[in-house]
């Protein structure tokens, strides 16, 4: 895979005087590509003269980083405590059964990536999931069914 390194250069430039800000730098790269491509990490390591091992270590330690491309849609099921006691595990089961993948994985057709998050701070609405940045609260298995199916035929998902 080849990536457009010009964007990377401008991100590197942004942190030129802030040599310890590796995490911020990786976050910006991650926001740009929606994951951390190996090629980019290696390139950044050369440019900022930091061992690749250190960047690789950071990329695997912090959960906001992914080394694999994400799917078109991101489904994050909240597994916070409030959601847990309100049935989040069953909701997660439903999502993973429906899409036939495990949390952290992407469907074969690259349409969905499912992740778990440790609380999004909307506990009054639990159990809930975040679908492409939008919160769907007071979930039921029916709602999940509709949400994930709705996106298949490009219908309005908010119904």
């Amino acid at each position: 895979m080849t990536v457009d390194l010009e964007k990377v250069n401008s991100i590197i430039e942004k942190y030129r005087d802030d040599r310890e800000a590796f995490i911020a730098l990786l976050q910006d790269i991650s926001a740009e590509y929606r994951y951390l491509p190996e090629e980019v990490i290696r390139y950044v390591s050369e440019e900022i003269e930091v061992p690749v091992s250190r960047l690789f270590s950071l990329a695997t330690f912090y959960t906001s980083f992914r080394l694999e491309p994400r799917g078109e849609h991101e489904v994050q099921v909240c597994m916070g405590t409030a959601c847990h006691v309100r049935g989040a595990p069953r909701m997660l089961d439903k999502v993973t059964q429906k899409l036939n993948i495990k949390p952290g994985e992407t469907t074969e057709d690259k349409r969905f990536t499912v992740e778990t998050v440790n609380c999004v701070g909307a506990c009054a609405l639990g159990p809930l999931l975040v679908y492409d940045g939008k919160y769907y609260g007071k979930l039921t298995q029916w709602k999940i069914e509709k949400l994930l199916e709705g996106s298949n035929d490009e219908d309005d998902q908010s119904s």
Binding site: P51, S53, F56, T60, F61
Partner: peptide, 26 residues
């Protein structure tokens, strides 16, 4: 003074590896 290897992942998944599990140029 080389940092050719590092800890990767965390918790029970933690291990020592070369970057991307391949030959480390360092």
């Amino acid at each position: 003074g080389k940092e050719a290897i590092s800890f990767v992942h965390r918790g029970a998944e933690r291990e020592v590896a070369a970057p991307f599990y391949s030959q480390s140029k360092d």
